[in-house]
């Protein structure tokens, strides 16, 4: 069903990763991703790959979900790694015509492949184990310091919440409008690109109009429930980081420290 796809990729569960505070999770995964690009040698890269594998197994999410997310970017990975093969110094390993593959190119290719795949896997760990609501909640709280710069943190989070809430509703409505237009003889499958794009108009216009009507209704319902922005607002669910989160943070920081140390003492292999 089209509706099930769009609701984010959250896979409910009760693993260690699921139970981490979403704020901590976001920060740690971000840190991890940064250090993927800090790593300059194979030892630190291996360390990071092991960490990624460990966090995947700790997430308790079936491996096929991760494989699916890699499949989506396989082409980009192949393309960039092949390009990188021909780019880099060191001794020549292979010569095809005017193109040379050098040792530096090979390590470049390996690095870029591992980096992209790890990056995708790490963000998958985050979205698989965190519900969209706790994700927006965490983002709201993490962005709170930005209030100093007059960023409307609460409003942004509210918009994300509402958008998530209405994705399935609007998809359902799109389905309905499409059926209604098809019943009137609308042809959406044949013709070239321009013709198909034009065939979308009779779907988009009613959808647009009804969205505005919904927005008006929702605004009224929110006002009826005393909504007046973020000021003086409390939350039912209070996030609090516990011992689990502290341990996870320490482990990640240690890994990052190890990456830095190995960068200092081991020669970099990238050119």
């Amino acid at each position: 069903m089209i509706r099930d796809i769009a609701l984010g990729q959250y896979i409910p569960g009760d693993s260690l990763v699921h139970r981490l505070d979403p704020r901590v999770k976001i920060v740690l995964i971000f840190l991890f991703i940064v250090f993927l690009f800090v790593a300059q040698n194979f030892v630190s890269l291996l360390l990071l790959v092991i960490s990624v594998v460990v966090s995947i197994s700790l997430s308790g999410v079936p491996l096929r979900h991760y494989l699916k997310s890699i499949k989506a970017i396989l082409f980009i990975v192949l393309f960039t790694s092949v390009l990188n093969l021909f780019y880099g110094g060191g001794e020549t390993l292979l010569k095809i015509g005017f193109m040379e593959i050098k040792s530096g190119g090979v390590s470049n290719a390996v690095f870029i492949t591992v980096r992209i795949i790890s990056l995708i896997l790490l963000s998958a760990v985050l979205t698989f184990t965190t519900s969209p609501t706790s994700l927006t909640d965490a983002i709201e709280r993490l962005m709170k310091p930005l209030k100093v710069f007059h960023v409307k943190v609460h409003e942004i989070a509210m918009m994300m919440t509402i958008a998530l809430r209405f994705v399935p509703t609007l998809l359902e409505e799109t389905d309905k409008i499409m059926s209604a237009q098809k019943a009137r003889g609308a042809d959406m499958e044949s013709g070239g690109f321009a013709q198909r794009a034009r065939a979308l108009l009779p779907i988009l216009i009613p959808l647009f109009v009804s969205s505005f009507r919904r927005a008006y209704d929702l605004a009224m319902a929110m006002e009826c429930r005393c909504y007046h922005g973020g000021e003086g607002r409390t939350k039912m669910k209070v996030l609090h980081a516990g011992a689990r989160d502290a341990v996870a943070s320490v482990v990640v920081v240690l890994i990052c420290a190890a990456v830095v140390v190995s960068n200092i003492f081991l020669p970099g292999v990238l050119s």
Binding site: T161, R165, Y227, R233, K235, M236
Partner: peptide
């Protein structure tokens, strides 16, 4: 058009919040 959150209990909490 009246429900704000994507989880029932969080929607009910909207008013008191």
């Amino acid at each position: 058009n009246q429900l704000v959150a994507s989880v029932v209990e969080e929607d009910v909490a909207f008013g008191p919040e």
